[in-house]
Design a protein around this nucleic acid. Sequence first.
DNA 1: ACCTGAACACCGTTCAAGT
DNA 2: ACCTGAACACCGTTCAAGT
Lengths: 212, 212
Amino acid sequence: MPTRTGRPPKISRAEIVTAADRVIEQDGVAGLTMRRLAKEVGSTAMAIYHHVRDKDELLLLLLDSYAATLPKPELPREPRERLVAAAVAMHEALSARPWAVEVLRADDLLSVGALWYPEHIVDAAMRAGLSPEEAVDAYRIVWHYTAGEISARVAAGKRREEGGTTYRERVFADLDPAAFPRLSEVGERWAELTARDTYAKGVRALAQGLLP
Amino acid sequence: MPTRTGRPPKISRAEIVTAADRVIEQDGVAGLTMRRLAKEVGSTAMAIYHHVRDKDELLLLLLDSYAATLPKPELPREPRERLVAAAVAMHEALSARPWAVEVLRADDLLSVGALWYPEHIVDAAMRAGLSPEEAVDAYRIVWHYTAGEISARVAAGKRREEGGTTYRERVFADLDPAAFPRLSEVGERWAELTARDTYAKGVRALAQGLLP
DNA sequence: ACCTGAACACCGTTCAAGT
DNA sequence: ACCTGAACACCGTTCAAGT
């Protein structure tokens, strides 16, 4: 074992990661800047680059550290219910850290610690009788739906925070009933209807449509 | 009609919008900066602010101008097929301008000119026998899936461009077969399997699961 | 009325120098 | 080996001044 020499470190990778998590909790991902993070760890922005290659790597570290804490619930035996339960668990994990979706969108699969979810969704699909290829398709379809739902939820939250009439409201306000009879029919109830949580409904539909 | 006085304009809103579309076509949304756009219209960044409130408004204008050009295909009569066809058309429209999803994620509905899609998806769902509430749920679920699929596609494209081993590949490389038997089984074929276009398969599953 | 240039308050990151 | 400060090359946007 080589003797470590030189100046002893003031900050560690672990410290940086927990500080970053704290910053995101307070100010959102957009609030996580290298300078702000430096302040949080009581150092300078440039010191961080000595422990982490760049901001992207930091986000991946953050992801892994969060993934490690995820619960691995007992899943029902019946294949269709099993798939739905695993998907709902994945959705819950992401709901707690919605920024993770933005980081993960790059890959249609979660980080190391979160492989549990795809594993069990693929497993459920295969237990239901799908081939490996079909099971992977099923997982990806569920993932796209899940990621899309979370993204919309995040965006809707931001919109509500900012307040004011949204583009959507203005669009609905001067809607031509002749051209859009169905949307006009729903009309003003749109906001109320779109606030409902329909995630589970969607996964159940997917499970029914995808599994034999 | 009041007489317009003062310095005649050198650039117009329409010019700005078409220039912005050109910039995005060449350099992607990330490449669309006010300074870059100014160069494209042959003016200064600040001149643009005289025609457009801010960058967000510019993106909405861009969206509307694109939406106006969208085809409105004849749809099949049979409700389930009708829903699938409308969704596929929406997916195609977004595939051609993937940045639109990023702008639209804010609202779970398209811009004025693109209302055609939700209108017909809701219509198909109601023709199939769903209540207005259920039909809106169905639309939103289809929208989340569609947006998620496009986002993943965009991200995958970027990843491929940048090249090099991705995080995902590294994750798969040292996969514990005991902990993740199903994923290990698929293993190296993952990249090949996830490259397949499964959008239509997903919508068909949704249609089957959501409609009576 | 429309356009311009300089400037502000930010980014992530590099570089050369310190301890 | 680790940290620092100054600096670079960017952002979107504001402001005061020009034509």
